[in-house]
């Protein structure tokens, strides 16, 4: 499946940028950014198997826990720091977002929007935790411990004093959402570009 969220993120990354991809998984996005955008890329990943997959792709990757923060990184040491679909799995999402905006000149955060109407509907009618393509887990084995909505994330940015440069939305991984109205109700996937004002 072509990941439209990856494509949107890719378009946000200028050619030759330095990129830190937090929770980079098996390195698919990072490898694509290197191939298409010639970035100087580095990833962070907690799963042993995923780190090995990154190494096999020739990527530079750190085996580590994002919740420990990015203390090793100097301010502004990357052009772009990406957190793709991992926000909801962090124990300390607020700290990580704050750190991203410190380490990167630009921070890109994508996450599943928990206020999308199908999810609301499922809760309302079935009265059970929603399971979908974006949220494919049962409640008892989900790694998603900090789900949030578009409104929630905007609130977080405001509280952290971060500037929202752009908001992009998708109906799903493979369905674009041009001119989407009321994204908190209609988008399954949100991509935020934030900066820390000087």
């Amino acid at each position: 499946m072509r990941r439209l969220d990856y494509e949107l993120i890719e378009r946000l990354v200028p050619d030759g940028a330095s990129v830190l991809d937090l929770g980079c998984g098996d390195g698919e996005l990072l490898a694509e950014l290197i191939r298409e955008k010639h970035v100087r890329g580095s990833g962070v990943e907690i799963s042993q198997a995923a780190v090995e997959a990154c190494v096999a792709k020739g990527l530079s990757v750190f085996h580590g826990d994002l919740d420990e923060g990015l203390a090793d990184h100097a301010d502004g040491s990357f052009d772009i720091v990406i957190l793709s679909f991992s926000l909801q799995q962090l124990r300390r999402p607020r700290l990580v977002v704050r750190e991203m905006a410190r380490v990167g000149r630009l921070a890109i955060v994508s996450f599943p929007n928990f206020a999308q109407y199908a999810i609301r509907w499922e809760m309302l009618t079935r009265g059970r935790m929603p399971v979908s393509k974006e949220l494919p887990y049962q409640w008892y084995d989900t790694p998603n411990i900090h789900l949030c909505t578009v409104h929630d994330f905007r609130d977080l940015c405001r509280e952290e004093g971060l500037r929202i440069e752009r908001e992009l939305y998708l109906r799903s991984f493979d369905r674009p959402a041009p001119g989407l109205r009321r994204p908190n109700l209609t988008a399954r996937i949100a991509i935020f570009v934030v900066t820390r004002p000087a």
Partner: peptide, 21 residues
């Protein structure tokens, strides 16, 4: 070991860090 890897990364060298449990 992380200290070594971080120092290399600070100057954008190609480096991976792997921890064996």
């Amino acid at each position: 070991l992380k200290e070594i890897a971080s120092a290399l990364r600070a100057t954008h060298k190609h480096v991976s860090y792997y921890e064996v449990d």
